[in-house]
Design a protein around this nucleic acid. Structure first.
Lengths: 214, 214
DNA sequence: CCCTGTCAATACGGTAGCGTATGGATCTCG
DNA sequence: CGAGATCCATACGCTACCGTATTGACAGGG
């Protein structure tokens, strides 16, 4: 499954915290704060931040808001909890990423290709992109985007680009990423068939990643 | 004023339709449907589609919704009218654009540079990007974006790129445009100073526009 | 066995917005 | 000047949601 023609579905098993074949299942159908956060992220992925409401979410989970307000102060508290969880996971991903491949060019190419094939992350990122008005969302996105652009700049630097060029190339690449997300995920600009899509990704790679002539 | 560090303000003189020094001003403070549409576009530019409501807009104009519902069926009718007006103007702009410059490379470079310096259009486009869920917004954006990408593809073709490369370069360029809009206008990724900004634009030009070697 | 902590349902009050109905004001034109 | 058209205000009902308060269900530990 790649970025194009992808559908969005819950895909949250009761997070990593519940390995239950049977053992540690305290109640039937009772919810933890974590479960609410997971559900919130699912809802955001599917319908965007604006659709995240406590009553709608409660209905979706088959309970009433009486439950919700036991776990959280307010709707915004839930949003912030969800953002927090998401941000730390994304940041961890970035770090894990750090030096998987030695050759600097191959590292970048691999990053581009992998990015084009993952999904869940981008769906949420894209949804959050549409909610940048919200005061809780913007700082999270600013931090993450900054970090990723810095990472890209470093990678381009390692390819022999000047400091200035590396930064600008990083900005350009990231802008292309963000824009493509919106075009595909939100605008649904036309469902490109997979072969075409691969060709596009390769074109991007060749256009944006210089040939390591340092 | 360029894309960076730009503030968003009404800037709608009572549209082009009212050239009044004094002559054709029928009433004092009475509103036409056009005036509502203009105000709607202003509001969208400032606060996004989600903020477009009839009561808020009425307050803003110093009247009550009693007035609004005389001119329009519903909130959505207003949105559609605003989208219609905006779309036709944008399309006209695209056409007017068509062949202002003979040399195909210079035409593209000029387009990129001019795009980086205009404002109003992009603000609304960017606001609409965040409202692509709305069934009235998406088709408009699909048409416009398609047209612009086609235009770009033609331009790149004229530079000697293969049909496939031209299309992919057009997609990439447009994605970079869309992404940069979100990054700057919505995320406010850090206010780049003008010199830096110009350098970025030149970097984009050099990276995305090949040297006409056909 | 019951007591306490945990999670959930119900009921309530409050806000903000949509759309309708109806009457008032003002302008135009015959 | 009066009649119709045009624009606006007011008042109303309705919906969807937030947040609070109160009570209920139920588990596990003493």
């Amino acid at each position: 499954m790649d970025l194009v023609n992808a559908s969005v579905r819950p895909l949250s098993a009761p997070p990593p915290s519940a390995p239950d074949p049977l053992p540690a299942k305290p109640d039937r159908g009772r919810l933890s704060a974590d479960a609410w956060v997971d559900a919130a992220l699912d809802l955001i992925a599917e319908q965007g931040v604006a659709a995240l409401g406590v009553e709608p979410l409660a209905r979706r989970l088959g309970v009433t808001k009486g439950s919700f307000y036991w776990h959280f102060e307010s709707r915004d508290a839930l949003l912030e909890a969800a953002l927090k969880r998401w941000e730390t996971r994304e940041m961890e991903g970035l770090i894990r990423e750090a030096d998987r491949i030695a050759d600097p060019r191959e590292r970048l190419v691999d990053l581009f290709r992998r990015t084009s094939r993952e999904m869940r992350t981008h769906v949420i990122y894209s949804a959050l992109l549409k909610a940048l008005d919200h005061p809780a969302v913007r700082p999270v996105m600013q931090r993450l985007s900054q970090r990723r652009i810095q990472y890209l700049a470093l990678a381009f630097r390692a390819l022999g680009l000047s400091r200035r060029d590396a930064i600008n190339r990083a900005r350009l690449s990231y802008a292309a990423y963000v824009g493509f997300l919106q075009l595909i995920l939100q605008l649904r600009l036309q469902r490109i068939d997979p072969a075409d899509y691969d060709a596009y990704v390769e074109h991007v790679v060749e256009t944006l990643i210089p040939p390591l002539l340092a």
